[in-house]
Design a protein around this nucleic acid. Structure first.
Lengths: 252, 252
DNA sequence: GCAAATATGATTACCTATGATTATATTTGA
DNA sequence: TCAAATATAATCATAGGTAATCATATTTGC
């Protein structure tokens, strides 16, 4: 009974009901409660769930669009740092894809400083954040809205992305490794990210160093689609070298 | 029963009705009232709701991001009346287009009462309002966001609509007359409305009686595309007859 | 094979969530 | 306007979940 298997089980349970209880998981997986709790701690750090007394619940649930998502405040400083770095690659008149996710959301703050940009996104929080800036042209990808994600996913959305071409794409993932490339906990999210990567000239992956050389459930994109990996200082120098051998520039 | 689960329930209730009562929540969640009250206190601190004697209400902040401005409150009673009438034509399992506009926005309140509906719209306020209702599937039309309108317009959006088919379309216009049909002050808005009318089985026009037999700047759709005109009591009976001669049922 | 890293479990002290009780505040209706 | 009804705040007690620490097993890399 492995750790990843337990985590997968937890995710599945969260998908069915909206919450899990520590003792239940412990019994089902034949481990002690403290082990479950440790799993939950790790998963909370990744923003996959929100811990409560007695177990955990799904992350996003608030009625307001975004501001109170539990995930937004996890690793806030790192996310801000990464976004600041990323914004250095944006130039006036760019057409950029912005992927969904709490890290990418923070990029808005920097985007608003530009005079002329076109942003294409499937994220409603991004739209909401940029709506106050007249000089930013925003395109929303059409399709089905997944309420709890505050974003648009599905086949329609994927096809919609194909109708666009951006010169830069800023995307996120739940993991990246030399062996498996980019990976995600969620199929729909992965599909959107991949389509963005396929419809752009240059792809920038924004993810904190804890996700580097970690794999999530599903690999969805090979490394050759990636041009830049933007992360924080916590990344190992040897790993940077390996990525640069694969022609991916690592910024930290 | 987690605390977070209770909070989620409270938020869901607030999404449906605009207020909750402490004893109700306590009974539904099988906890004491004081526990509910403590939940409400915490949520109020986060700005998720506003506490009142006996329970809590939605914060205006929670709806502000995508919501309309004060225009919404003009003729509120008539608009509500018209929407109530219109909602009588909606049935479970329907797939409906909802056009942009302050009148149509009020239809959301009634839509939320249904168990199973699919809504296709280009209006961000509509999306935002329906996002709290899990049982309503919402599709957003893709394209360029016009900030001041809080909606999506343009060629892309028009083409996007063509990929859908709804059995009912609820639309608005700035004027309607026997001579010129539906007319609008805005070309882009008109184009979207027309496309919706062309991709549906039945079209319902919601507009207050002051706009009947008035023409706006640009005529955009002939009367034969219209099936129902839903308006308020202010409409002249002779005019109703004229419209019914043209096979348009007038509801008031 | 062995050291280092990782994963798991047991124990204790601590903290959180909840409810009962009583005093105080707010609302409602005659 | 005042009193009855109802809601709330404040305090305390308690059950149960959690963090911290240490100990033990298992895997990984040299």
């Amino acid at each position: 009974m492995h750790k990843e298997e337990r985590k997968r089980h937890i995710i599945r349970c969260l998908g069915l009901n909206d919450q899990v209880y520590t003792p239940d998981i412990a019994r089902q997986m034949h481990v002690s409660e403290i082990t479950v709790r440790r799993d939950l701690i790790e998963m909370e750090k990744k923003g996959l769930l929100f811990r409560t007394h007695g177990g955990a619940v799904k992350t996003s649930y608030s009625q307001s669009l975004f501001s109170f998502d539990h995930r937004l405040n996890i690793n806030a400083a790192e996310k801000e740092y990464i976004c600041r770095l990323a914004s250095g690659f944006i130039e006036e008149e760019d057409i950029v894809f912005i992927d969904c996710g709490t890290t990418l959301f923070r990029l808005c703050k920097f985007i608003k400083a530009f005079k002329k940009l076109t942003v294409i996104t499937n994220s409603l929080p991004v739209v909401s954040e940029l709506m106050s800036s007249e000089h930013i042209k925003t395109h929303l990808i059409g399709g089905e809205i997944i309420n709890e994600r505050r974003a648009i996913y599905g086949l329609r959305a994927e096809n919609n992305i194909r109708e666009y071409h951006a010169n830069k794409a800023f995307v996120g993932s739940d993991g990246i490794s030399l062996r498996k490339g980019l990976s995600s906990y969620d199929e729909k999210e992965a599909a959107i990210t991949l389509k963005m990567m396929q419809s752009t000239d240059t792809t920038y992956l924004l993810c904190d160093s804890s996700k580097v050389e970690k794999d999530s459930f599903m690999a969805f994109a090979p490394l050759n689609l990636l041009d830049f990996l933007i992360t924080d200082k916590g990344i190992d120098k040897r790993i940077i070298k390996e990525y640069e051998k694969r022609n991916i520039k690592v910024i930290s």
